[in-house]
Amino acid sequence: MSALETQVVQSGVVDSRVGKHGFQWGTFLRHVLLIFFLVVVLLPVYVLLVTSFKGITEAQPARAWLLPSGWPWEWTLENWKGAWSGLPGIPAVGPAMGRTLLLVIPSSIISAMLGSMNGFVLSRWRFPHANLVFTFLLFGMFIPYQAVMVPLYKLVMWLDIPSGIPTLILLHVVYGIPITTLIFRNYYESVPSELIEASRVDGAGMMRTYWSVVLPISVPSFVVVLIWQFTSAWNDFLFAVFFASSPSQGPVTIALRNLAQGAQLTNYGASMAGALLASLPTLVVYIALGKYFIGGLMAGSVKG
């Protein structure tokens, strides 16, 4: 797994030749290509933005790639308002975003705590066959959830958990255990064991060592895990569609899908405004904490 966990090294190779000979065709070509791909990657964003400010009559195929006709004096916020607070017969993205927040905050905090405790006892407060237990937990990361969906449905009904957000919290916590355990375990393995041994020799119990020695040094891993769990729960659609697909109870992905596949005619402007709204939280997290985000991705991408 080690390759997956490698952090992107920020400091890299400084090419010693740059600047020696002034203008270089190779460097120039490289930058041209980089900018070309930059434009290609951003094309969908351009379409999203432009269309979200167009009125119904303007969001026509022929004008697909053009700015709103009256730009920059005439454009409309109707799509954004409609997507936020709902259009006739179509669920609003705004309240769904609120529900999703109620889902992702508890589920990411609980699974981070569980992962941290598991990682601690699997690396620095070990018991016999700890590696076997680790493998046992880790396997949960690789399964396609389709393989458990049918009996899971039955189990959730049997447990009688309120449907919608509470069910999703449970599922994200449970299926988050492998990845959070993995990230924390690898982090604690890299912490010098003397630190914990010292506390142990002093006669501190496990919980006290965890609380006063381990937890305070775990901040970097908590950031990685919280970001990872936040984005994957925010973006989740699979569990949502099986367990919280009613428009009034579902998270933001459900609302967005209903908005984008509206009853008869898709309202492109509103759907695109809704897609942008729904993406804002993860994008903000990504821009603010991008460095950690990458670290988390390295570790976590194989998860269900």
């Binding site: 980089l34 791909f37 930059l38 990657v41 951003l42 094309l43 969908p44 379409v47 999203l48 269309t51 697909a64 984005t231 925010w234 973006n235 659609f237 992905t253 967005l256 899908r257 984008a260 492109y268 759907s271 695109m272 809704g274 897609a275 942008l276 729904a278 993406s279 993860t282 994008l283 997290v285 990504y286 821009i287 991008g290 985000f293 990458i294 991705l297």
Partner: peptide, 24 residues
């Protein structure tokens, strides 16, 4: 900046990406 732009689409949910790609 370039790296962030190349990487950002994975922070977007497939459902949100689907909205614009369906149209594209």
């Amino acid at each position: 900046f370039i790296r962030s732009v190349y990487l950002f689409p994975m922070a977007v949910s497939s459902i949100a990406a689907g909205v614009v790609w369906k149209w594209l």
